[in-house]
Structure formats: C-alpha cells, structure tokens
Design a protein around this nucleic acid. Structure first.
Length: 223
DNA sequence: GTCCAGAGTG
DNA sequence: CACTCGGGAC
C-alpha cells in the first residue's frame, strides 16, 4: 500500500473503531482559542478545570481578559500548569485581537486562511500546533494539525523520517487528503486517541490498535 | 514516578 | 543544542 492510500485508510480504520470524537470540546470559538493555548503540553482534564474557573470568574471573553490583572489571570488558570507563561500567552493573543481587530474574533477569522495562520503565529507563545488548532477548530479552515502523536504514529509506520519537520508532516497529510475541514478535525482527534491508547512514547501497545494491520515487517521502528 | 491537544529562551 | 515552565491524573 502506498503512502497516500495508507494515510486515507488510517482515518477509516480509526473512525470505524472509535467513532467521531466530537472535537473541539468547547461552547464557542473563543473558548477554542483559550483551550488551544491552555492545553499546550498539558492533559486536557487539567485544562477543563482552568476553563471552568475562567467561566466562574466571568473571564471568558476578550474584554474581560484584557482587563484582568496578570497575577489574577495566572491564579485562575493555575490547574492548567505553566500558569504564569500561559497567562502571558493568553494576554498576548488578546492584545493582538483588541489592537488589530477591535476585539472581534469574527474580524480576525475573516482573513484568508494563510493570512490568518500567519497572523496568529506572530503572537508570542503561539507556535505551529496551537496556531493550526485555532485555524482548524475555531475558524474551521482546512489546515492539518500536527502534534507529537501524529509524528510518532507516522514515523512508526515508516511514513516519515524521525527528523521530519512540522511542515513536512503537515504537507504530507494535506497533499494526500481531500480539503475538508470537518475531516481534518476528526482525523487529528482520532490520532490523539490512537496516541493515548496505543502509540505511547515509552511502551507502544500495538495489540488491538486499529492501525496495527498497516504495520510492515520491522515496524514499529525503534526510537 | 511518568507524562501530558508545546513554545520560548539561553 | 539543552533547559525552563507546572499542576494534576494515573
């Protein structure tokens, strides 16, 4: 099976095994943005607590976040970890939104997809994965979100090299899939599920993984 | 004790 | 290149 077929077959196999994942779990696009920043290298369970705190404090809006004292914001999002850094990152995004788009997410999202991605990437503390999560899940534009699980799963199946860059992997996925935001949303969520359940860093549990049948001789590759 | 829906800095 | 940021779930 060649690369493109395999990439498309992965999706079908995971979807058949686990069904739709319902990502991104949030009530509004703004909440998606906040969650995308808070979940950097962090368990989603902890992010849920932080978002619940923000809601309880009435801080889940651009205006409220722009006014909140940095120390207070940090304390409220504390359960998400890296709380001082993340408080600053949230503020950096809000500052950009207020300054350049009148605080309107809709105005920001009206940009063409490529310009939107670049604009979000310019915010200090928002890197490629967080930017693409915002573009895909909050703005519903067709960019593929790459994360550590994506790289590991593709690497262990021999579809990318160990040193493949973010852009390498993103291009590989986008070049071999239809340009469908809803599908990209689902595919990334399914890869995260596969990563958590089976393709863990230290001890991969290939047995029972819906992607197991796509492994070839010698795979998964050693780290 | 491990590890998480990463990114910036020295 | 390594190091920092970090609470919480398991």
């Amino acid at each position: 099976m060649r690369t493109g077929e395999k990439i498309r077959a992965f999706y079908d196999a995971m979807l058949a095994a686990w069904g739709p994942q319902g990502w991104w779990p949030a009530e509004t696009p703004f909440e998606v943005v906040v969650g995308a920043i808070l979940t950097q290298n962090t368990n989603w369970k902890n992010v849920e607590r932080a978002i619940a705190n923000l809601k309880g404090e009435g801080l889940l809006s651009a205006e409220a976040l722009a006014r909140a004292a940095p120390e207070r914001l940090a304390e409220v999002i504390r359960p998400a970890g890296y709380y001082r850094v993340k408080a600053r990152r949230l503020r950096n995004f809000i500052d950009m939104l207020m300054r350049d788009f009148g605080g309107s997410l809709d105005a920001l999202f009206a940009l063409p997809a490529a310009a939107l991605r670049e604009r979000v990437l310019e915010v200090s503390g928002i890197g490629p994965e967080t930017a693409d999560s915002i573009v895909l899940y909050a703005a519903a534009r067709p960019v593929f979100v790459v994360d550590a699980y994506t790289a590991r799963i593709l690497y262990r199946h021999g579809l990318v090299d160990a040193d493949a860059t973010y852009e390498d992997i993103q291009s590989l996925m986008q070049d071999n899939l239809p340009d469908d935001p809803a599908m990209f949303q689902e595919y990334h969520a399914l890869l995260v599920e596969a990563g958590k359940r089976h393709c863990r860093k230290a001890a991969p549990l290939c047995s029972g993984c819906p992607l197991e049948r796509f492994l070839e001789r010698g795979q998964p590759a050693a780290e």
